[in-house]
Amino acid sequence: MKRAKTLVLAVVLVLSLVLCACAKDSGDKKDSSGNNNAGTTNTSSGPIKVGVVNNPPSESGYREANVKDMEAVFSKANGYDLKTAYSLKNDDQLQAAQGFITEGVDYLLISAAETTGWDDVLKKAKEAGIKVFLFDRMIDVDESLYEAAVVSDMAKEGETAVKWLLDQNLSEYNVIHIQGAMGSDAQIGRTGALDEQFASKKMNKVVQQTATWDEAEAKKIVESVINSKASFNVIYAENDGMAKGAVAALDDAGITHGVDGQVIVMGFDCNKWALRELLAGKWNYDGQCSPFQAQIISDIIQGKKTVTSKKIINEEKGFDAKSLTQADIDNYGLGE
């Protein structure tokens, strides 16, 4: 019995070793042939081959809209041959990028899971004559390794929102600040501008807590403030879901909110359902985090737009409940 077990174990070990070796082999082979391929495809005419390395659409409503936008812009009708690879893991993404280089795409578009580890792959792409664009997220590499990076400026999103809030000319600002997952780009960016106001005493921090993007947690945070009888007149939630959770707490406590309400409600991301809350006057403000980078990249590829600075900031709006229209919801809303 024991012998049988060790035998099985040995077989499994040997097999896995062989498999590993095989995988490495094939990888290397692809590499060497890949360089040749890339050389030939660049000269051939036909659809422009675009390889997109992205996070999976399941990551968020943002990503889903982002993926759909990519597919719509880099369509066959627009003269593109689109290949995609989705993963939340940097290693998988690196492998996929490697694969695209081997296949010989003309352009490589990357939204990296992590900012590090991309040097070698991008250098290989450059050697193969493949032009690289970064979108949504920056990577820690030398600027010369990519054509342009089309990204959101999260700090600017926060500044736009805070500027809007200051424009409301309230006699005093008592703010409940519900943060996203600490350390995420969106949280750091959207927190920055508000922190400045807290520091300069223009606004009072009633509470500043992270709900890690969790709607139910946001509700708990606001409930605890209501129970403590502290007065507040602004809820600044760093995404739509948490704003919804906060509003649920207000509703339970009989506190009015939105246009003409006691409390101003602010959210981010511009989900369609959130914009509808704005249109109904239940919320006041929603800041956009635009997932629509594909058109800008396509314009650069087709020479319609010239790159002056490698970092291109994607224009983002902030919507006010008073001026929002149904057309805005159709154009800028994410999801359904």
């Binding site: 890690t212 969790d214 139910a216 509700k219 879901g241 919804k244 649920a248």
Partner: peptide, 13 residues
């Protein structure tokens, strides 16, 4: 039902 919203990533996380 609490929030009228299903977020598969955060529901009862």
């Amino acid at each position: 039902s609490r929030l009228g919203l299903i977020n598969h990533e955060t529901l009862l996380i």
